[in-house]
Design a protein around this nucleic acid. Structure first.
Lengths: 142, 142
DNA sequence: TCAAAAGCTTACGTTGACGTAAACGTTTGT
DNA sequence: ACAAACGTTTACGTCAACGTAAGCTTTTGA
């Protein structure tokens, strides 16, 4: 599997090197392997991850802190599925799963609220658009 | 038509008084009438406007500068409808309307793209949620 | 092999979007 | 009529999300 240096990742993701390091610092991006000299070596997964972050940031308008919540949930789930196979205490497993479920449910409600308002906004702009089109229709061409 | 003082507007809109004045300063909110003493007297339209701004800001993740672009388009439209009644050159009116329509159409496409990605995102989270719920179901209670 | 190019850390600077405090004027209830 | 409550402007403070510069180390290609 190929690996990338930071400048290549920067060009592929459209983010600056500073931003990429900053996201790692915040815990949004998992720390990549390093060369013996200390240089970061990224994989394709890192690049995909950055794409998801940019999506959440620009398209969904989430703050980096909100995105961090999602990342933590994702990590909880994978650590959870690990525990699920190895732990002996079923009751404890269940409690932790219920805890994670609560967080995800909260995020779901948040997204649904955003979706609803977004649809509403879309309707408003659509109405403005129709009014403009009507005005054009009612304006003579020459 | 009733008018509101800033504290009432603050409570109705959920924004602080500081933010309301700030939006006026930026040109996002039209300056309201004043009492002889200089106090701002808002109307229902101002409140509606603030609601739209909050929507665009929180839900769509637009910056205040981007929202200002929308506001300017809106103003173009109303100045347009003024011209529509007073101007003598119908062809010129039409050209300008078509220009505005293009901008609005672009914004509409942008919103639709956001909506699509958001729906997709919601589906992904929903799937994760179901997996967690299934896991809870399959974990013994005691 | 060795200098230029690229990377690393550390630290201070900047910009947008407000918060907060001061110092003062205006309304309003009693 | 007057004090408390609310409003106004002005100005400095703050926090997130990076930008930028310095000083140093590591890679790399001729």
């Amino acid at each position: 599997m190929k690996n990338y240096k930071i400048d290549e990742v920067s060009k592929l993701s459209g983010l600056t090197k500073r931003t990429i390091r900053y996201y790692e610092e915040l815990g949004l991006l998992s720390p990549p392997e390093r060369t013996d000299g200390g240089m970061r070596l990224y994989t394709q997964e890192h690049i995909d991850r950055l794409g998801q972050i940019v999506n959440a940031r620009d398209v969904l308008g989430f703050s980096l802190q909100e995105i961090l919540e999602f990342v933590k949930i994702r990590e909880e789930i994978s650590s959870q599925s690990h525990v699920y196979r190895t732990s002996v205490d079923a009751e404890e497993k269940r409690r932790q799963l219920v805890e994670v479920e609560k967080n995800v449910a909260i995020q779901l409600r948040l997204i649904d609220q955003k979706l609803e308002k977004m649809t509403q906004f879309r309707a408003e702009i659509g109405q403005i658009h129709r009014r403009i089109c009507d005005a054009i229709e009612n304006t003579p061409q020459n």
